[in-house]
Design a protein around this nucleic acid. Structure first.
Length: 530
RNA sequence: GGGCCCGUAGCUCAACGGUAGAGCGGGGGACUCUUAAUCCCUAGGUUCAGGGUUCGAAUCCCUGCGGGCUCACCA
C-alpha cells in the first residue's frame, strides 16, 4: 500500500496534521519536501474518510537570526528580536517581516502546488494567552525539563535556568535574555550583551510576567505546547530533528512528562540532496524553491517528493539528468495509470502515487492519466529549431487535435523546457549552430561523407531549396545519388553545422539558416582534409 | 560516539517474500522523410560479504565491511 494510505489506514478518530516553519531565510527545494509530504498525508486521510485538518504554523516568535534580508543599520537593532516585530523589507506592504515572508515565500510556493493548509501565527497564540497554561506548566516543572534535557540529550542546564525566553522590555530582543527565579507570577531576566554571538542584548535587568505574549517557550517546549494546544495527531519532521537524542525525542519527552500529553505520530523524512550534499541556501544557489519551480511544473515537483518513501534520500541535481528523467518517469506512471503497457517495474501503488501528484485533490485521475504529454527532452529540442510549429507537431505526434487540457500541459511544459534550456540544461541538450568557425569534429568525416557534402552544396546552389520540406527531400536525394546511407549523410550534416553527430530534422534546420552560409559551410566542410 | 539511509548490469536506479528489470551508454541491424524519432537484436549481473528465518530472500532478522547524510550549541 502507498505509504500515505498506510498511515491513513492506521488512524482512528479525528486527525490534525501539523507542520511549521521558522520564517527566516529563503526556501530551497528541500524544504518543500515536508510540506508536500504533510499534504499527501492530509489527502490520504480525507480519502480514507477520516475527518482531518491541515495546519501550518509560522514560528514568528523566533528570534531573527539571519541578517541576509536586513539592511546594515537594521542588523544591530533587529537581530535577536522576534520575527513578528521586525519590520518588513522595504517596498513590502506586510505588517512585519514574518508576514512578508509568508506572503512572499510561502503563498507563492504552496498555492501553486495545490497545498492550502490553515495558516496560524505562533505570536498570536502567545498574545491571546492561549499558550499561557503551557508556559506556567513549563515554569512550574522546570526541574523536570532540566532532567529531560540531561537524560535525553545529555545537555546540562544550570539549576537556575528556566525554560522561557523573555522579550526585553527595553530593547525588544528575545534571543538575548536569560531568565531566572519564577515565583508563580513573574520571572527575573537580564538582557545579555554576549549570550549569543549573532545578537547583542542591551544589558537591561527586569522582572516581568511571562504570560500573554511577553515571553516565549524555547523551541522544544514550544513544539510540544503546540501539539497540546492544537490537538496535533500527526506531524513529521526532517531527519535532523528525528535523530536519537535529538529535538524530536526531547519534545516527545516534554510532551509526555511535562504537559502529560501523548505526542503526535511522527513521520521522519530524509533530505533532498544536491550532489550528495544537504541543500543549504549558500550551497544551493540555483536550487531555491522559486527557481526550481520555474523549471518543474507543480505536478512534477509533487511527484519528485511523493515517488520515494519518506525515509529515502532524494538526490536532486538540477544540472544532471534529474529533470528530464523526472518528466519521463511521471509520464510512465501516468501511462500505467491509464492502463497502457509500460516498460520497467512499477512502484507498488503507482495509481495512488499518480493521484497524489496531481494538483487538485478532486482531479479526474483517469482523464489526467490518459492525457497526451509531450516528451520533455524532445520538446526542448524542438523549441530550439527556428520555424517549428510546436502545436502542429504535437498534434501530429498524438494523431489527433489536442484537448484544452492537453494544450495547457503543452504550454506548461514549453515554459519549463525554455527555462531549463536557459538554466540547467547540459551542453549536449543545447543546440548551437557553429556560425563563427568550422567545428573541429569535421576532421572525423570520411571521404564518402565529404563527397556527399560537396554534392549537396552543388545541388543546393543550383536548386535553392526554400523550405524545410524541399531541403529534406534534397538531402535524401543527394544521399541516394552518391550512394551514401542516409544515416551517414545526416551525421555529416550535423557535424558540419553543430559539431555533433545527431540533431533535429536537418531539412528544417538548414532552411532556417542563411542560404549563402549553408552552401559555403557545406563546401568548406567537404574540403577539410581528414 | 548515537541515529537514519544506501551498497543490484559500464553509469543512474527500479523491483521490497515468489523464476533479477528499466533508462542511458556501448555494440549490431532496419528506415526516401519525427534521424536525441520509430522498430528489431545485444548486458548472461555469486543483487557488498557471512550467518539465520522460510517451501521460497535482492526483498525479513543478526553480524561485519564500505559510502552518504545527520545529531551531540541554538532554533
Amino acid at each position: 500500500m502507498y505509504w500515505a494510505d498506510e498511515l491513513a489506514a492506521a488512524a482512528s478518530g479525528r486527525q490534525v496534521v501539523n507542520d511549521s516553519k521558522s520564517p527566516s531565510g529563503t526556501v530551497h527545494v528541500g524544504s518543500l519536501r515536508g510540506v508536500v509530504l504533510h499534504d499527501a498525508i492530509y489527502r490520504a486521510l480525507r480519502q480514507a474518510g477520516v475527518e482531518a485538518t491541515f495546519l501550518y504554523g509560522v514560528d514568528d516568535m523566533d528570534a531573527m537570526d539571519s541578517q541576509a534580508k536586513l539592511t546594515p543599520d537594521a542588523v544591530e537593532k533587529y537581530m535577536g528580536a522576534p520575527l513578528s516585530r521586525v519590520p518588513a523589507p522595504e517596498g513590502s506592504n506586510a505588517a512585519n517581516y514574518a508576514r512578508h515572508f509568508v506572503g512572499e515565500i510561502f503563498f507563492r510556493t504552496f498555492e501553486p502546488l495545490g497545498i492550502t493548509p490553515e495558516f496560524y501565527w505562533v505570536s498570536e497564540l502567545y498574545a491571546a494567552g492561549r499558550m499561557d497554561p503551557y508556559v506556567k506548566l513549563a515554569l512550574d516543572r522546570a526541574d523536570r525539563v532540566r532532567a529531560i534535557y540531561l537524560r535525553v540529550s545529555h545537555v546540562e542546564r544550570t539549576s537556575t535556568w528556566l525554560p522561557i525566553q523573555v522579550i526585553c522590555e527595553q530593547c525588544g530582543k528575545i534571543g538575548t535574555t536569560y531568565a531566572t527565579d519564577w515565583n508563580g507570577v513573574t520571572v527575573a531576566y537580564r538582557c545579555m550583551p554576549d549570550l549569543v554571538s549573532w545578537a547583542h542584548g542591551c544589558g537591561h535587568d527586569g522582572r516581568v510576567s511571562p504570560l500573554g505574549g511577553r515571553a516565549k517557550l524555547p523551541w522544544n517546549l514550544e513544539w510540544a505546547a503546540k501539539w497540546g494546544l492544537l490537538g496535533v495527531t500527526i506531524e513529521g519532521c526532517g531527519k535532523d530533528l528525528a535523530t536519537a537524542g535529538g529535538s524530536r525525542d526531547r519534545s516527545d519527552a516534554i510532551s509526555r512528562e511535562v504537559f502529560e500529553i501523548e505526542p503526535p505520530r511522527n513521520v521522519a523524512y530524509e533530505f533532498l540532496n544536491v550532489g550528495g550534499k544537504k541543500m543549504s541556501t549558500s550551497k544551493g544557489q540555483g536550487a531555491a524553491a522559486h527557481t526550481i519551480a520555474e523549471v518543474l511544473p507543480p505536478e512534477q515537483l509533487r511527484f519528485l517528493f511523493l515517488r520515494p518513501r519518506p525515509s529515502q534520500v532524494i538526490e536532486f541535481d538540477p544540472e544532471g539528468e534529474t529533470i528530464p528523467r523526472l518528466f519521463d518517469e511521471f509520464d510512465r506512471i501516468a501511462a500505467a495509470t491509464a492502463g497502457r503497457e509500460v516498460k520497467g517495474e512499477l512502484p507498488a501503488d503507482y495509481e495512488r502515487l499518480f493521484a497524489y501528484s496531481l494538483l487538485g485533490p478532486a482531479s479526474d485521475v483517469a482523464a489526467a492519466a490518459a492525457a497526451f504529454r509531450p516528451a520533455f527532452a524532445h520538446l526542448a529540442l524542438l523549441l530550439q529549431i527556428p520555424g517549428v510549429d510546436i502545436a502542429e507537431r504535437m498534434e501530429a505526434e498524438k494523431g489527433a487535435p489536442l484537448t484544452a487540457f492537453e494544450a495547457a500541459i503543452l504550454a506548461e511544459r514549453t515554459a519549463s523546457a525554455r527555462a531549463w534550456l536557459d538554466s540547467y540544461a547540459p551542453e549536449r541538450a543545447r543546440l548551437v549552430i557553429r556560425h563563427d568557425a568550422m567545428p573541429e569534429e569535421v576532421a572525423a568525416l570520411d571521404a564518402g561523407q565529404r563527397a556527399y557534402l560537396a554534392a549537396l552544396a552543388s545541388a543546393a546552389g543550383a536548386e535553392k531549396p526554400g523550405s524545410g520540406d524541399a531541403w529534406q527531400g534534397l538531402i535524401f536525394r543527394v544521399a541516394a545519388d552518391v550512394e551514401l546511407p542516409s544515416g551517414r549523410a545526416f551525421g555529416a550534416l550535423y557535424t558540419a553545422f553543430l559539431g555533433r553527430t545527431n540533431g533535429p530534422r536537418a531539412g528544417w534546420l538548414l532552411a532556417s539558416l542563411e542560404p549563402a552560409f549553408v552552401v559555403e559551410r557545406l563546401r568548406a566542410a567537404a574540403a577539410v582534409a581528414a
